[in-house]
Every structure is written in C-alpha cells, then in structure tokens.
Amino acid sequence: MTACEALASGALTLLPERAVWSARERTLFVADLHLGKAAAFRAAGAPAPYGASAETLRRLGALSDAAAAERLVILGDFAHALASMTEGLAESLRAWRRARAALDCLIVLGNHDRRAAPLYAGCGFPSADEPALVAGVACRHHPLDGEAGEPGPATLAGHLHPVARLTGRGRDSLRLPCFVIEGRQIVLPAFGEFTGGWLVRPEPGRRIVLVAPDRLIDLPRPAPPSAA
C-alpha cells in the first residue's frame, strides 16, 4: 500500500502535533524526540538550558492522552546520547509511564539510540531494531532511499527532521516542519523541542505537508519537468 493510499483510506492520519495516527489500531507514531539533548551538551561543557525534554514529554503525554492511544511507536532517536540518560530524565520517564501504564510503547532504535538503548527498558520503554512491523505498518528510523517507490507495506520513518519553506508575496517565507510523502513512505517531522531541521524541496512524486501550529498545509507540487 502506498502512503497516499493509506492516508486516503483513512488507515493513517497526519496530525498537526507532528505525529501520525492510526485510528483503527489506536496507535500513535512519533519520531526523533532527542530527549536529554541539553543534558548531553551540559555534560560536555556547553551550557544548554533546562526545560526542552520536560516540554517534549508533556506534549507527548497530552497528545497520547487526548487521542486515547493504546499504542505508541517512537521511530528512533528517543534520547540524544548516552549522557542524556541522567537519573533525572530516567525518573521523568518512569513517572510518565506510571501515568500511562496501559499504553503499549515501542522504540524503534535510531542512530542516536546506539549507546543509550540498554537503559530504555528500565524506564519502561521496550525497544526493537528497524524495521519493526506494527499495526501493519513498517516502522523505521532511517528512511528508505530508492526503494520507497517499490511495492511493500506502508512505511513510517524519521531521522531527517524535515522542514520545508512556505513563501508569500513581498519575499515573505517561513520554515515549517513537514511530513514528506513519497511512494509507500511517510517521513515524520521531529517531535522533540531541541531539534534542528533539514530543508526539503518540492519535487515531482513528492508530497510535502507543512505543520503549522493549528493546521496542516499541502504544498503545491511542481509540474513534472517539460521535455525542453
């Protein structure tokens, strides 16, 4: 099933909260939380401020509670680095899980999770290598590259932190996080607070859905290049 078909049939829904929702499976998908990134910077002597991880977890809790999700899949880069997994963060994670004991959680491991992964289970978050098939969806951290156009199950991925540009008259332009839909794959925007962005440009065969604070915006797709 292509991603577009999955979206059109209602099997999957894009949310302006930077998540994908499967109503039938009551499953919520998010990517790239980068929890404890500021702590990793602080441990290395760069004074990054407090508050980003708490805000990320608060938003994730609010979203999952409001949707009454039964399952949560995190598409990699749950924590930023080993130094991110401070006792403070571990305690916040356990508290977060205690408040949602019934929620079934799974972390599909990403590149940033390599060294911190053994600590996740102790905080109540089981993990698995990519790809993990959940609710009929192939869950990955690293997006498929060429194969996204080939047949296969609908695929969700993260890693890229995609953002795209919305332009207007008077040379106005804004960078907004976005979903990138190509073939059977949807790449999710980063969910975390303390994350940068990788600029994606419109291309034939690529659908870009921008995330505004309260809405989703489909970017017009460029016409295929003419023969000239």
């Binding site: 990793a40 401020p49 980003a52 303390f194 994350t195």
Partner: peptide, 24 residues
C-alpha cells in the same frame, strides 16, 4: 563519531534559549 552528537546550530541554540532561558 561521538563528537557529532555535540553538534547543534547556533540558531537552534538561540531559539532554545529564547524559549527556556530568556535572561541568558
């Protein structure tokens, strides 16, 4: 490789400071 986890753009830092530590 481990040094790469220490990379963030100054613009991102600026935004995070503005949001979480505006008196910095």
């Amino acid at each position: 490789r481990s040094a790469k986890t220490m990379q963030a753009s100054s613009g991102l830092f600026y935004d995070v400071f503005r949001k979480f530590d505006p008196d910095n």
